[in-house]
Amino acid sequence: MSLAQLYQHIEHNEWVEIPEGWLQGRTIYGGLVAGMMMHKAVATIADPQRRLLSCNVTFVGPVQLAPVRLSAEILRQGKSVTTIEVRLWQDDAVQSILLASFGVPRESTIAVNQERQAPDFPEVSSLKIAEHHPLAPQCFQQMDLAWVDGQYPCTASKKPDFSGWMRFNPERHDNRKMTVADLLVSMDMWPPGVLPMYKTMAPASSLTWTLTYVHPLQSSLHNWFKYKVFTDYAADGYATEYAHLWDENDQLIAIARQTVTVFA
């Protein structure tokens, strides 16, 4: 099942089958879970004039490769901003929650352009796309990732963090215009910034993930994006980090911040 087919099922059904190929260990990749909830939010609001402003995702529990139920409630629909909550249910329990705000453009005298500028990367054609390691999560095969700075996960690096190019794998995804649901699916594919410091294979998982949507997407699934992550702090089994995503024209698309549970 393609992502487009999955989105269609979400639009017309309360219960949805999760497609194969998205496992992250024994559970479903969190980016896919977030993307499913985002598409449910967009379909429920059903107003293309209201674009995503920001969203917060809490991964309450592990999602298995089994049917899930998506419920959505518009908490408030004002003149400019709509706030919506989406819940993903499995085994009669809430496993993930998305809280998102959508808004229409408003007149304002305030304009600030201080967003972080895109880093200078070598052409992606000169880099090696990361090969899928047999012990790496299955879901990594859905994306092409090319490291520019920093080390690969589990290489005992003395420092965290990395940057690189990313896109949907053209062999697994037909090209089409990218949506905000696709944005959530893709942006969470990079591992947490502390993973290069791991000395051996061990898990890490997102606990909360907040995304601010800056400039509207003008990209397709096969277009490349620049990604860079920075870890603020890590101790006592948790880490906090933020990441920026730019399109191939160096336009800032999104800023993400997450809390990560660390098992190493």
Rank of each mutant, 00 (worst) to 15 (best):
V86M: 07
F102W: 08
L65Q: 14
M38Q: 15
V68D: 00
P48H: 09
K40V: 01
T82Q: 09
M38E: 13
V33Q: 00
L98W: 06
N56E: 15
T58F: 08
V42Q: 05
V94P: 05
F59S: 11
V68Y: 08
F59P: 09
D92I: 09
S80P: 01
V63P: 02
G61V: 13
M37A: 07
L99I: 08
I84Y: 04
L53I: 12
G61A: 15
D92N: 15
V57A: 14
V57S: 13
S108H: 11
S54C: 10
M36V: 04
Q77Y: 06
P48D: 11
W89I: 05
N56K: 15
L98R: 00
S108P: 05
R69E: 11
E107C: 13
A93S: 15
L32N: 01
R50D: 04
A72H: 06
T83V: 10
R87Y: 04
A41F: 09
R50Q: 10
S101M: 06
K40Y: 01
V33F: 10
R50L: 07
L98Y: 12
F59M: 08
D91S: 14
L75E: 01
R106Q: 14
R51P: 00
E73L: 11
V81M: 05
I97R: 09
M37H: 02
G61P: 05
S54G: 10
S54R: 12
V33I: 14
L99Q: 14
A43L: 09
W89C: 06
S96V: 14
A72W: 04
P62A: 14
R69Y: 11
K40E: 03
V81L: 12
A93W: 12
L52M: 10
S80A: 15
S101E: 02
I74Y: 10
V63E: 03
A66L: 08
M37D: 05
S101G: 02
V42S: 06
I45F: 08
L99M: 14
A66D: 07
K79W: 06
S101W: 05
V68Q: 00
L52H: 02
Q64Y: 12
I84Q: 00
M37V: 03
C55K: 03
T82L: 03
L70K: 00
Q64V: 07
L98F: 12
F102V: 00
G31P: 09
S71Q: 13
V68W: 08
E107Y: 15
D92V: 08
L88S: 04
P62W: 07
R87L: 11
R106I: 08
A100L: 06
H39W: 13
R51S: 13
V33R: 01
V63N: 01
I45H: 05
T58W: 10
S101R: 02
C55E: 07
V42K: 00
A46N: 15
A41E: 09
R51D: 10
R50S: 06
A66I: 05
V68H: 09
R51Q: 15
